[in-house]
Each structure stands twice: as structure tokens, then as C-alpha cells.
């Protein structure tokens, strides 16, 4: 480990209230520890920020997958393994279950959490485009109370969010029907290899059509094409009210390319990311039955 642990300490609250109290009382920003699959990479590499860490892993209040009214509510500590195994998630939120299955491999899926993926805020986070495509809301909790933030307004920039220093992610709330059966949907991950891979491009699409075949609902969300995961609103608006045909596929692809700003980095090139983002959308549209 490259970090000098003398500069770090760990608080281990026994309850959520205790944790919120510690957050409220702390003058410095606490580092929130869940499954550790991201934070330990930073710690081992010697790039983690020294200071106090707050261990959320033992807080059972942050676990569980429930149907509450017309929402699916996912505790922030829900692991990828739990997402994959949940009948509710597989049935109502298939893109999220598929995304969970592509994160790392078994040992990482057993420890990595949905809340951690959101909080870490990597633009390549695999679960994030599905959350955008499903109109998820992030339930933030502090000693001051609870508030919900639409996920597409959660990030304010590269790895920066609206969460205040005394807030933690308590839950993720997703309206039921966001991925309902009549809608076409697809999760696409293009990673560095077939498993245990970071995304070069990750995308989630949901598309609904009315009785006349015209598109009445569209979500197109991408990761790794901008500093944060993004919904392509211009693309979504462009297709609303239209029917799928080769012309729409062409024009919408152009809109898509105008709306993303991928970069060259050590995992891929901007050019490749643009290519893959476009073909992912194109192929999704082409393969919608009966278009």
C-alpha cells in the first residue's frame, strides 16, 4: 500500500443516525466508505485523500430492494450481486441488472455498491446510464433531513455532485414502468475486454411508441462520452413524435454526434468512442422489431 495509514482514521457508526450525527459534527469532509472497491484502489495507489473515513458498510438501513408504491427503492449499499439476483430488478429494471452483471467480476460485484458507483462519480460508471434512462432520483440524507434529486441533475461536473458535505446517499428511487414491457430498451457496454473491464463507452436506451408507431418516449443515456454520465436530450427530443425509419436513424445519429464530447485517454480514443456511441444507437434503432 502506498498510502501512509497514520494519516487516516476510520469511524464505524453502528446506526444511520449515528453516521448522520458524525457527518453533521465533522468540520472536515469525511470520506464515505462502502464496499471499498474504488476507494481501496486509490488508497493502495497512494492517491486517496488522508483524513477521517466514515464506514457505511455496516449500516443495514442502507440495504434492501423494495417496491414502495409506484417506485422501486434501492438502498445505497445494494451490491451488484444483489441487483443481478433480484427478481424485481430483473423484471422491472432489466438494464440495471444487465449493467450490474458487467461490472468487474464476481468478487467485485459482491462488494461494489450502487450508491458507491454514484458517489464515486466516474463518467465510466456502468450502472449510471441505466439510472439516467430510468429517471432515477437520488435520495440524499443528512441530520437535516431527506431530499430527492433527479439523477440527471445530480452531477455538477467531473466527479462533482450536489451532495453537501454532511449528506450521504441513502437510496435510489426509480419509478415503476420506467422500463416497462411495451418499451424497447438496451444496455450497451463496450469495455476494454470481455470481463473485468472498465467501459470505453456505456449506454442505456429506452424507447416507447404509441399505437401509430410514433415515438412517444425516449431516453438515451451515455457514459464515458463527457465529464459526467449524460442524457442526450436533443437526441431524445429529435426522435419524439417520429416513426423509426432509415432517415430518422441517420438524422438522429447526427444529432447524437453533435451532443457528445468524448476524449482520448489511456483506455480509448475520442474517435472510437464517437464511432461506438453512434453505432450503439443505430443498431438499437435498427433492431427494434417492426420498425
Amino acid at each position: 500500500m502506498r498510502a501512509r495509514l497514520a494519516g487516516f482514521s476510520l469511524e464505524r457508526p453502528g446506526t444511520l443516525d449515528e453516521a448522520l450525527g458524525m457527518l453533521a459534527a465533522s468540520k472536515e469532509r469525511l470520506t464515505l466508505l462502502a464496499g471499498g472497491t474504488d476507494l481501496y484502489v486509490y488508497l493502495n495507489a497512494g492517491v486517496a485523500r488522508p483524513g477521517r473515513w466514515l464506514d457505511l458498510w455496516g449500516l443495514d438501513e442502507l440495504r434492501g430492494i423494495h417496491e414502495v408504491g409506484d417506485h422501486v427503492v434501492l438502498g445505497a449499499l445494494t451490491t451488484y450481486t444483489e441487483l443481478r439476483a433480484s427478481e424485481l430488478v430483473r423484471g422491472a429494471l432489466p438494464l440495471l441488472a444487465q449493467a450490474a452483471a458487467t461490472v468487474g467480476a464476481v468478487a467485485i460485484q459482491n462488494r461494489g455498491t450502487l450508491g458507491g458507483n454514484i458517489a464515486n462519480g466516474s463518467p465510466a460508471g456502468d450502472s449510471l446510464p441505466p439510472l439516467l434512462a430510468y429517471d432515477a432520483e437520488i435520495g440524499l440524507r443528512s441530520a437535516r433531513g431527506r431530499r430527492f434529486v433527479p439523477f440527471d441533475r445530480f452531477y455538477t461536473g467531473y466527479r462533482a455532485s450536489v451532495a453537501a458535505p454532511d449528506e450521504l446517499i441513502e437510496q435510489i428511487r426509480i419509478p415503476l414502468g420506467a422500463g416497462s414491457g411495451s418499451r424497447a430498451c438496451r444496455f450497451v457496454k463496450v469495455g476494454t475486454r470481455a470481463a473485468q473491464a472498465i467501459s470505453k463507452v456505456v449506454a442505456a436506451f429506452v424507447l416507447g411508441r404509441g399505437a401509430d408507431g410514433s415515438i412517444d418516449h425516449c431516453r438515451a443515456a451515455f457514459g464515458s462520452v463527457a465529464p459526467t454520465p449524460v442524457r442526450l436530450r436533443r437526441l431524445e427530443q429529435h426522435v419524439i413524435g417520429k416513426r423509426i425509419d432509415p432517415a430518422l436513424i441517420r438524422t438522429s445519429s447526427d444529432v447524437l454526434l453533435s451532443e457528445i464530447a468524448p476524449i482520448d485517454d489511456i483506455r480509448s480514443t475520442a474517435r472510437y468512442r464517437r464511432f461506438v456511441a453512434r453505432t450503439a444507437w443505430q443498431r438499437f434503432m435498427e433492431e427494434i422489431p417492426g420498425h
Binding site: 471499498g36 472497491t37 481501496y40 484502489v41 493502495n44 464506514d55 464476481v106 468478487a107 459482491n110 462488494r111
Partner: peptide, 8 residues
């Protein structure tokens, strides 16, 4: 199963 290098 976990990777012990990323578990405190």
C-alpha cells in the same frame, strides 16, 4: 468471495 486487497 471478495478481493482481500480492496477490503478493509
Amino acid at each position: 468471495v471478495v478481493n482481500s486487497c480492496v477490503v478493509p
